[in-house]
Simulated scan of single mutants.
Amino acid sequence: GLVGLGRIGQEVASRAQAFGMRVLAHDPYISEEIARNLNVELVSLDELCAQSDFLSLHVPSSVDTFNMFDADRLSKCKSGLRLINTARGGLIDETALADAIESGHIGGAGLDVFSQEPPTETRLTTLPEVVATPHIAGSTEEAQELVGVEAAAGVRDYLRLGIIRNAVNFPAIAPEETQRLQPFVNLAQKIGAFVAQLATGRIKTVNIRYYGELATGKNELLVGAVLMGLFKTMLSTTVSLINARAVARDRDVEVIESHSTRPRDFTSLLAVRLETSLGQLWVEGALFEHGGPRVVLLDGVEIEASIEGASIVIRNLDEPGVVGTIGAVLGEHGINIAQFALGRDSTGAVAVVNIDESTDTEKLNPDGTVIKALLANPAIKSVDIVRI
């Protein structure tokens, strides 16, 4: 049993499961989904005490947790329980614990922390059923060196790879989970930036949906990446994976996540739908083995378009001559086409034209000559410039 299923509690759960143990936990701040992904069952504190053979505490010291294991709580524990506290002193009424061990109701205890350190009352620590350690593991020369190395490695990993470890204001994510998500973080950020530059009106809601392999596991990194890409195109303030949700909340932008098991044509797919004061914009993206991040759906129209560098996004009626117009206009203005992606359905067509970065940016302003020349064709309904 675990009281507290945060970063350390999750590590203890993993190690307990390696020994074939069934793991229960009580933590009112952990979602059912997270617990389910960890193969841990969330229960009430009373149920946890009644069922656990071993009980490990991993909660902070607060008014709510002070002496949470008092005589009454200990009496509700399963007979023979071994109680472990390596978290904070003050979580256990030490006199009550000594009484419970001497009576035979509690089988023993492992204690690294005490209400007073070093403990002056030796009755509990001298019991043969108690293993007491002096809470100095972090004070050795080796530990202090490791703390420094870990802090430096944490900064390095974030700056180089975007991996966040042990943050106090961001959910803890296991290294293997970070490694699984890292390629999709790049995709999510670019999809966020892509939809932001196509959207019109005030953003009200950001809907993020995961398909395929992305539909399992924790995807908080992807939420932050979508929002970071979205807001970085709009704001001059710093937006990061850590503060992206707070930025959305401050601007009254609702963030909704959903998971779908519906089969799609891709192993993993990320969909983002923006709801604005003027309508909706729906984009789906996927990773291609040799093509990198790609847009594969734009407002319901299937397409396969690169989202690197500068692009011109064109919506038009599906009529002859539009592609020729696009090529002619860009050629006349000295704009070189790097890639041209086209998609169409019964409602019309969409083109994403990747262009060389050397293009004169003034020509591509909303009132620039290129945009005006393209819109002169009555079949072309809109032209947007996207820079990733």
Rank of each mutant, 00 (worst) to 15 (best):
G343K: 02
L287F: 11
D53Y: 13
L124W: 10
T276G: 03
S268N: 06
V43R: 10
E94G: 10
I34V: 13
I164P: 03
L55D: 02
K204S: 08
G192E: 09
G334F: 09
V131S: 02
E357P: 08
N336F: 12
E176F: 04
A98C: 13
D250G: 02
S61G: 02
V63S: 15
I380K: 03
S103F: 10
N243L: 08
A143E: 09
A167V: 03
T133S: 07
L274C: 04
I92C: 07
A341M: 02
H26L: 04
V322H: 10
L83D: 01
V130A: 03
R249P: 00
T133E: 05
V149G: 00
L111G: 00
P134V: 07
L159N: 13
S75D: 12
A341R: 00
M68C: 13
I163T: 14
S75A: 15
V283W: 00
V313F: 02
G348Q: 04
L270P: 08
K204L: 15
Q179M: 15
S44L: 07
R315G: 01
L222K: 06
R251P: 03
R202P: 00
E117I: 06
R387P: 10
V247N: 03
L274W: 05
Y211G: 03
G4T: 05
L187W: 07
P28S: 08
Q51A: 15
D157S: 10
D367K: 10
F184I: 01
N186W: 04
D112P: 07
L97I: 06
S56V: 02
S56I: 10
T120L: 12
H105I: 08
V383K: 03
S31M: 09
A244Y: 10
I371E: 05
D367V: 00
F340W: 13
L214P: 03
G285V: 06
L342Q: 14
F66I: 00
E129I: 03
G138P: 01
E254M: 13
A215L: 11
P175E: 07
F194N: 08
L287T: 10
G192V: 03
V185F: 04
V43A: 11
L374K: 05
G6V: 06
E289Y: 09
S103W: 11
A132C: 08
